[in-house]
Write a protein that binds this DNA or RNA. Structure first.
Lengths: 195, 195
DNA sequence: TTATTAATCTAGCGACGCTAGATAATTTCA
DNA sequence: TGAAATTATCTAGCGTCGCTAGATTAATAA
């Protein structure tokens, strides 16, 4: 009697198709092009079907963001693993952060810029988001006394670099130099109680 | 024959009323509430009149952003002037930056987050935007060899802190500690050629 | 087979940005 | 001064949006 199971699978698959379509359209044409009608066409169902999966459009953006956080975490972990020492790991993660943000701008936008349902830095924060924070914290920890504090600040610096470069406000050509500056600051200042 | 002048003044005043209304509504109810119809009601003209002043809605957001940059520059300069030494100036400016961003979130959003017509870091960048960058550069300069590079990085760090705190992603309670960290990094690392 | 429930669709509401074309006010000039 | 040209402004509406009520079809249970 696997009928219910099959239905569940079909439903999950359709949901995944919605999220995937949203992501593809956003990356190709920007988030404004991700409309409910467009997604409905894409999955070959009528519009109300989308509302059986997601409460509203924002929830779809949020679902894409969660996917993004998963891949983001993997990318950061991989960068850290490929490094030979803790200093290299820090820099590799910073480079991976910016490469991620700038190579998938729409995904990054969903994760960090657009309004979503996601709640951060509170008790019920989703594990995908916690994991991303953890991946940053892991490479920062060797260089500081207050890991949470330093991770937040490191994250903010990287987000600032990504957001400003992504919107054309700072010179792309100086990206590496800016990252080096951030890394150096953490290495030099991290273990200072006066911080 | 001051008729043309009076008309010019009337027109400029009406334009200012549009921008002011947009700003007030955005700050009170968010940018989504800033619709052309709403603004038309507010200034007591029909909708097409708005298009005699601005090419489209984005141009209105941009106009608010430019106003924001003017006030932003003043706020940063004032903070720098009130300081006793260069280190204090740096910290005062950083604090003023975050206070500005978090106390007028809609204005800051127009300046740095929403899509606008504004062009940055290029030849035809508007003087209001250059001035804001200059106000940051002025307090950073004493601490570095490459002022542009350091200013971009400082700015990115502050923007990251503002954006992440403004969207609830990092703890408001740790704001001062994060700023101290950023300031310390610049003071300690700035004059290092290895950066 | 029929009654019930679940799945899906059609059609439309109110609001959006924006604009064509009509009207009213003003200015120009014979 | 009075008709013609120009400018200022409005009404009305196009196409699109997110979202949903209510109808319809398909699947399940009795």
């Amino acid at each position: 009697m696997g009928i219910a199971e099959r239905k569940g699978r079909d439903r999950a698959e359709r949901e995944q198709r919605i999220v995937a379509a949203a992501r593809v359209i956003a990356e190709r044409e920007g988030w404004d092009a991700v409309t409910i009608r467009r997604l409905a066409n894409e999955i070959e169902y009528s519009q109300p079907v989308l509302y059986a999966h997601f409460e509203n459009r924002t929830a779809i953006v949020s679902a894409v963001a969660v996917e993004g956080f998963q891949e983001f975490t993997l990318a950061l972990r991989e960068a850290a693993l490929g490094a030979t020492d803790t200093g290299n790991a820090l820099k590799a993660v910073a480079l991976a952060y910016l490469a991620f943000a700038l190579s998938r701008p729409a995904l990054y936008e969903a994760m960090f810029i657009l309004p979503t349902d996601l709640r951060f830095a509170v008790g019920d924060t989703r594990p995908e988001l916690r994991a991303a924070f953890g991946a940053l914290a892991a490479v920062v920890a060797p260089f500081c006394v207050d890991t949470d504090l330093m991770t937040e600040t490191f994250w903010a610096a990287l987000h600032g670099l990504a957001a400003l470069e992504g919107s054309g406000r700072i010179r792309p050509s100086a990206r590496d130099a800016r990252i080096s500056l951030v890394i150096q600051a953490i290495v030099v200042c991290g273990n200072d109680a006066s911080a």
